[in-house]
Nucleic acid binder design. Structure first.
Lengths: 188, 188
DNA sequence: CGTCGAATTGATGTCATTCAACTACAGTGG
DNA sequence: CCACTGTAGTTGAATGACATCAATTCGACG
C-alpha cells in the first residue's frame, strides 16, 4: 500500500494539474498514545495512513463493551467503512503514531482520479482489505476461540507483540478470560 | 451496481477501442438450481453478476460443515475475494439463475480501465461490499444469535423468504436448531 | 515501594451445540 | 391417487464452550 505522500511525489513528477489541492489535502499528524481520532456518530470521516505506530478501530456496544474491528500498524490504511456518512467506529492510537490524513471526500475526488494512480493501485488496497475481511468472517462463523487465536498469531505475529492480550480477545470476539484459558489448554 | 452488459452498452456508445475484447469477455449463463460454479481450491476465479435468481458462496470446514459466506440475489456481484488465486469459496446456485460472468483477469484488465467507468463506479461496488462486511463482522463479534437474526431480517427481508432457514443459520454462524429455538423464544 | 491495569485462575451460569426423536411436507415412482 | 423417501423444521435432554463475577498474582512504571 502506497502512502499519500508517495502518491504526491509521483503526481509532482507528472505535473498533475491539481497538485496544490492535492498537497493541501494531506495532513501529517503526530498522535500521542490514547488519542481519539474519531467517534461513533461523527459525521466527518477520514482515511488514516499509518507511517509509524499503531491505530485501531472499534465499536462500543449497548453494554459499554469495546469490540475491536481492526488494528492498523505501519503501512496500513484505516477508515470507517460505513456508507452513510456517520461513523460506526471509534479510531484511536494504541501507540504514539505518525499518520497521513485525508478526508474521504478529498480521497475520492482528488486521489482516486489521479492518472498516476493506476487501476491496480486503485483496486489493491480495497482488495487487500476485502480479502482480510473475508478471512475474518470465515473464522468468525466457522472456528472456535483457539482456532481464531492461532490463525491470528500466524497472520499478525507482530501485532501480538505490541498490543495487550485483552485487545486480541476483543478482536477475536471472546473475553480476555476465555483467551487466557484456551491458551493454557493447548499445553495440557 | 451496474451489470457488465450495461457497462458494455456505454462502451459501445463511446466507441471504446477494445470493444470486441470487452464483449467477448462477458458470458451470459443460465444456471440450474444446485449447479456448482466454482470450488474451494480452484484456480480460475470469476465474477458473477446476478441478473435473476440467487447464488451463494460458502466454505466447507474440516468436519464437512457448510458455512455460508454470502447470498447474491438479483443485482449483486459475487466472487471469491481471496488474494492468491486459489479460491477459498464454493459458489453455487440456490435457484435457477441468470448471470453475467467475467474472469477476474478480464475484469481488472478490461473493465476497470474503461474511461466510461468513472471513479465513483469503480469504488462503489467495492465500498458497498466493504460496508456490508464491516457490519457483518461487528455483528459476529458483538451480537447474540437472536440479535444477528433480527439484524439479518431487517437487512435482507427478501432473502429470508427465498432460502431455507438452515442456510440463514449457516450465514449467521449458528446451527439450524439454535435458530429455530431463538425464534420461538421471542414470543414467550 | 506502592499503585494500577493486565493476566490468570476458579466457581458458577448461560447460551449454543450435539444428538436424537418426531412432524410436516414436497417430490418420486408405483 | 397413494405409498415411499428424503429434506426442513421443531423440540427435548445432555454436553460443551464461552461468559460472568470475584479473587489473586504479575508486571510496568512513577
Amino acid at each position: 500500500m502506497r502512502s499519500f505522500t508517495e502518491i504526491l511525489t509521483e503526481a509532482t513528477k507528472n505535473n498533475s494539474p491539481k497538485l496544490a489541492e492535492l498537497t493541501a489535502s494531506v495532513q501529517i499528524l503526530s498522535i500521542k498514545k490514547g488519542t481519539l481520532l474519531q467517534k461513533q456518530g461523527d459525521i466527518n470521516s477520514n482515511l488514516y495512513f499509518v507511517k509509524k505506530g499503531m491505530l485501531r478501530s472499534y465499536i462500543i456496544d449497548e453494554k459499554g463493551k469495546e469490540h475491536i474491528f481492526m488494528f492498523a500498524p505501519e503501512g496500513w490504511l484505516i477508515a470507517d467503512g460505513s456508507l452513510d456518512n456517520t461513523n460506526e467506529l471509534f479510531i484511536d492510537a494504541l501507540e504514539n503514531t505518525e499518520v497521513e490524513v485525508v478526508s474521504q471526500k478529498d480521497f475520492y475526488e482528488l486521489f482516486l482520479p489521479l492518472a498516476s494512480v493506476n487501476d491496480t493501485d486503485r483496486a489493491e488496497g480495497m482488495l487487500r482489505r476485502m480479502s482480510v475481511m473475508q478471512k475474518r468472517i470465515i473464522m468468525l462463523i466457522s472456528a472456535s476461540a483457539i482456532e481464531r487465536y492461532e490463525h491470528f498469531m500466524k497472520t499478525y505475529p507482530d501485532v501480538i507483540q505490541r498490543v495487550p492480550q485483552k485487545m486480541i480477545a476483543s478482536y477475536l470476539g471472546i473475553t480476555p478470560e476465555a483467551l487466557s484459558k484456551v491458551k493454557g489448554m493447548r499445553f495440557k
